[in-house]
Amino acid sequence: MGLRGLAELALVDSSDSLRPPGFDVMMVIIASLGAALATMQPISEPHVAARIILDPTLFAATLFLALRGSAGVAGLIQRGVVSVYLSYPVSRSSVYTAIAVSRVLLPAVTLLSAPLIVAGLVLLPVVSASPGSYILVFLAYLLQACMYGSFFLLAGLVAKSPGTASVVSITFYFAYNITMLILSAVGAAMGNSTVSGLADAMAFYYMVYRSLLGVGVEVWQLLLVPLLLLAMLLAGYGYFTRRFEPG
């Protein structure tokens, strides 16, 4: 039952998290933005194309994750749906994994890949020259989105109230980005490369992009966001499997 049960539960939950028309409208907007950005500029390198298209997409995808991944999960708890999930013959870890897949991974993959597919078709002669770097930048943005999403999921599970979960999630997102800006400004003002490097490292996609440009990136800068993602997933997993009560 293990993996099959997990997959079935993820599919059941994703019918709520990806339900039309909200998700479809968001996809149309994001894909259209990708289409506009890909055709208005003479982009001649795959990794540059991916960055230009995914920069605004990440913001939109993150807000969507805050609504469906955080407030959505809190709503499920309030409506007793999570209690129903827990009554299935699957372990708590499977339920948590299924929710993480349907509320974080699947929406992030779909929302980030839709404009990328559009841009890939429009710029086919450019992207086909080096599809690897195009996909690599996509994976970097996906990892950053999943890092935000895994925190949102944790906030939803702990808060159990859609309103509180939304506020906490959006506050976290803005606090994270403002911290990045402040560290960058402080680093530049002080001429301190470690502080500037820390600000850069908070944007994993930027680190991957810079390394594709040939600009030097240190190993710890590439590890920061993946470690944050791991820490948040483990915190959510630990909370859900040990302390979580559906109420």
Binding site: P20, D24, M27, V28, A31, S32, G34, A35, A36, A38, T39, M40, Q41, P42, I43, T110, S113, A114, P115, I117, V118, L121, V122
Partner: peptide
């Protein structure tokens, strides 16, 4: 659903390219 969305956006890309396409 993703195919429908991608198709719409690709048509839109053609329209945008005609109106405000890239300069070389």
């Amino acid at each position: 659903r993703t195919l429908i969305v991608v198709g719409i956006a690709v048509i839109l890309a053609g329209v945008i390219a005609e109106l405000v396409g890239a300069k070389t």
